[in-house]
Design a protein around this nucleic acid. Structure first.
Lengths: 232, 232
DNA sequence: AAGTGGTCTAGACCACCTT
DNA sequence: AGGTGGTCTAGACCACTTG
């Protein structure tokens, strides 16, 4: 039975949990650990690299592997399209495009999207339903420059999120999560009371550095939660 | 100049972005790619393994590497203690313990914490302030069985989150994020109107499988947002 | 049965940073 | 200047799953 990187990693984790190397301490070097575990240095390297990826230690050349202390909790979040979320709940999904327009960016939009004023945009407002009930209200802008196909695309049948995911997968993204009070038009669309809490997810994406889209996704606060299982 | 795993990964990403291998397709095997890039198989392996870690492809023995299509967006979230968040904003942090009690779990609490009814608990209510303003209202239960030191600890001076992080680092966690309406006592503590939106983060943690703590962290919705940069 | 990914080894060179 | 981690290589064996 050989010593694999998983065992090495687990052994190191156990020692860390036991407080053998307190935060701030420098762990033994790879060569020494490899000798101790009777394995190749690469094996130790992979074990420790994963610990570093998980934010548990920090590695620096010449300095060694430092145990981190006040690191925050890390969690891995997966955000799905509305359709997948609804189907995953075992409900019936439906999509409705409320409006789709072409426009040019004014000063405000230009700043928010980080594009030049006057850029061509596609503006959308859509509703996603779960079992006929409003699930998500989507407001979205798409930069025609980054996605020329958007200029002529009809979004009456297909949600723009899914369309974009198909056309421009592997784009970079930034997300912001907030709680906000529903304003009258939003409340009406979502069939909730004005001022009631909304779960707000805003997403901006880039394709090779160029802004692609900006979306604001609203959920009724009493019927939505985001679950993030565990660290790393 | 040799071909490193970073270059291989980038090259593969570019081809994926270009649509060379659409979702559902099976990418060439490691041996073939290694030949093409004129590098060792392990180098290709590491490149593709990272793509798999990022949820872009799925690898299965004998079957090959499959390009995923409708995967959700993956994001890496880092959750810090209230103190770090406040200090990070450039504000002055203050902590106030509103109440700390000892009690035994009733049926409801026992179920929520997944512990036997009658277990000893520590119950806390704390307020975290930023520049004298309410920042976070914390309600927390700590299982004495998993953390015996909690029975006698005085939390008047130190936030329980920081204390636990020090005592039981590297615990597992589950997070839930919601938007909710402030109930009267919460609203009063946070100096906001009843019914106004709250950003709610609930966290449960385990230490080697045993439930450790359950915390409910409330932020005024109009003054808080969670930012998640990019995928992976 | 065969082919794919998963992992280990031993050795090597390099890049970087602290001393 | 020297020691640390970062990475590559070539070869090997294993584990799994499909045909």
């Amino acid at each position: 039975m050989k010593t694999g990187y998983r065992e090495v990693k687990q052994a190191l984790l156990n020692r860390l949990r036991a407080g053998e190397w307190p935060p701030g301490a420098i762990m033994p070097g790879e060569v020494q650990l490899a000798k101790e575990f009777a394995c190749a240095r690469v094996t130790v390297n992979r074990a420790i690299r994963e610990l570093a990826d998980e934010g548990i230690v920090r590695r620096r050349r010449r300095r060694g592997t430092e145990v981190l202390g006040d690191r925050g909790r890390q969690a891995r979040l997966t955000l799905h399209q509305a359709r997948q979320q609804v189907v995953g709940r075992g409900q019936v999904y439906a999509y409705r495009c409320l409006s789709q327009r072409r426009l040019v960016a004014g000063a405000g939009l230009a700043q928010r999207l980080e594009i030049p004023a006057g850029s061509a945009l596609r503006a959308l407002r859509c509703l996603h339903l779960a079992d006929e009930q409003p699930f998500q209200l989507e407001t979205r802008w798409i930069c025609v420059k980054a996605v020329p196909e958007a200029a002529e695309q009809d979004f009456a049948a297909e949600p723009p999120g899914e369309w974009l995911m198909r056309l421009k997968p592997l784009s970079e993204a930034e997300h912001r999560i907030q709680a906000a009070a529903a304003r009258p038009p939003e409340a009406a669309r979502l069939q909730m009371a004005t001022g009631a809490p909304l779960f707000v997810l805003q997403r901006r994406t880039w394709w090779r550095g160029d802004p692609v889209t900006w979306a604001r996704l609203l959920h009724p606060g009493d019927a939505y939660e985001l679950v993030v299982r565990d660290g790393v």
